[in-house]
Each structure stands twice: as C-alpha cells, then as structure tokens.
Design a protein around this nucleic acid. Structure first.
Lengths: 106, 106
DNA sequence: CTTATTGTTGGATTGTTGTCAAACCTTCCA
DNA sequence: TGGAAGGTTTGACAACAATCCAACAATAAG
C-alpha cells in the first residue's frame, strides 16, 4: 500500500492544474472522482472507449499536476481527488470547475 | 465603434475557457485586464517581449473562448474581461482563477 | 509454476500550439 | 494623397500532446 510521487501542495502550479482540467477526458475523470470518490484505474477507463495506455497517460498528467492522488494496493491503483490540498492552494477553484462541469456531462 | 464576433454567453465552453487560461501569457493578460480594466492590444503587448502577431494570436484565443470582449474604436482594439457573462455561465470560476493567479505574478 | 489481472513504458503517428517574420489591411493624420 | 499607427493573416517551424499498439512488469490466483 504505497503512494505514487506527486507535487507537494505548495508546489502545485495554477497553469498546470488548468491545463490538466482543460481536456474533456480528464475533466470527466475528475467529475467522476468527485461524484463517486476513489476509483481504480481499471474502472475509470473501462467505458471510455480509449486504450488503457492512453488512460494511463491521462492519470499521469492529473497526478503530476497535483489534481489526483494515486495509491497503490496490490496490483490496483486507486485515484482520488486532492480536494483539501487544492482548496488550500487555490481556494474555490476546484468547486467552481466541478460545478461548471455538471451541465457539461448530464 | 464595433464589436468583434464572440460566442454568446450560453455557448461558452468550459474546456475552452480552461484551455485559454492555461497558458502563462494569456493568464497574465487576463490578470492585467482584471486589475487595470479595459486596455488596447498595443498596451497589452508592449512589454511582453513577444511579437505582435503572437499577441494577436493570444487575443483571438481569449476572444473565441469567450473570456474577453474586443471592441474596435478607430484603429485601436480594446480588450476587456467578460466578467458578468463568465459569472453567469460559470459562477465563481473567474474569481477563483484570478485569486489563484495573484500569488503567481507578484 | 503458470497464467490472468492491472497497469506502465516506449515508439510511431497524427494533430495542435506557441512563436516569429513578412505581407497585408484599416484608419488616422499631415 | 501618402505615410504612419495599430492589428491581423498567412506560412513556416519546432515543440508538445493525444492516441494506439506492442511489449513489459508486478501481483494475485489457480
């Protein structure tokens, strides 16, 4: 049960977060993580129609931007939103993006 | 005194706004427009060190994303933030981004 | 030990983006 | 009427990004 490397809260860069969220696939992932909580890479990717390596690429972008936390347990990896860290670093940002994302994917 | 074409408020897309804001140059422009209000393209570009055609490219991205309004008066073009429209479409988003941008460019 | 599960990595491809330079277009002014 | 001022457009180019595929790695299960 280990954590994958990720930026410290103070190191999270605004433009990287915005860039991570500016892709429709990743925005959907983030919205799902917000709605359903922690999920495995497998479950996140299963009904996107995208190749698993493509999804792995997106997971990495989100993690390196500081948007998600990746926890490994056995052969599974669990992604979850870094809500508190993002709120501390950029207050209100994630909430407003998530609210805005709602009327995008009904 | 005319307006350049821009998306209607209801047509503004979240991912396009995020993409427009995810570039350091454009984020600085938006922060300046927020701080100083309406500005001409010339004044916005003069101390960026970038070519005027490059700046023109950024103005267009911001306008087509629905982030700025462009008003032409004589040979000058004035850019301003579409604050109210963005607030109506994505409540809180612009404010949180601008607040977050503050500790980026001191 | 062998096989299936759950992902990551590297390479290839295709498309997008940021930048500059040169040419152009409009509008103002002398 | 001819510049000059203020921007845009087009073309070129390098860097980056999204995607797929094949191969690999680690862990769990039989």
């Amino acid at each position: 049960m280990s954590l994958l490397p990720q930026p410290a809260t103070t190191e999270i860069q605004l433009t990287e977060v915005l860039r991570a969220l500016a892709d429709p696939v990743r925005l959907d992932l983030v919205a799902r993580l917000d709605r359903d909580g922690e999920e495995t890479c497998f479950r996140l990717g299963v009904d996107t129609g995208l190749h698993k390596s493509t999804m792995s690429h997106h997971y990495r972008i989100l993690r390196e931007a500081g948007v998600v936390l990746t926890r490994q347990d056995g052969r599974r990896k669990y992604l979850s939103l870094r809500r508190a860290d993002l709120e501390e670093r950029f207050p209100g940002l994630l909430d407003s993006v998530l609210a805005a994302a709602l009327d995008r994917t009904p």
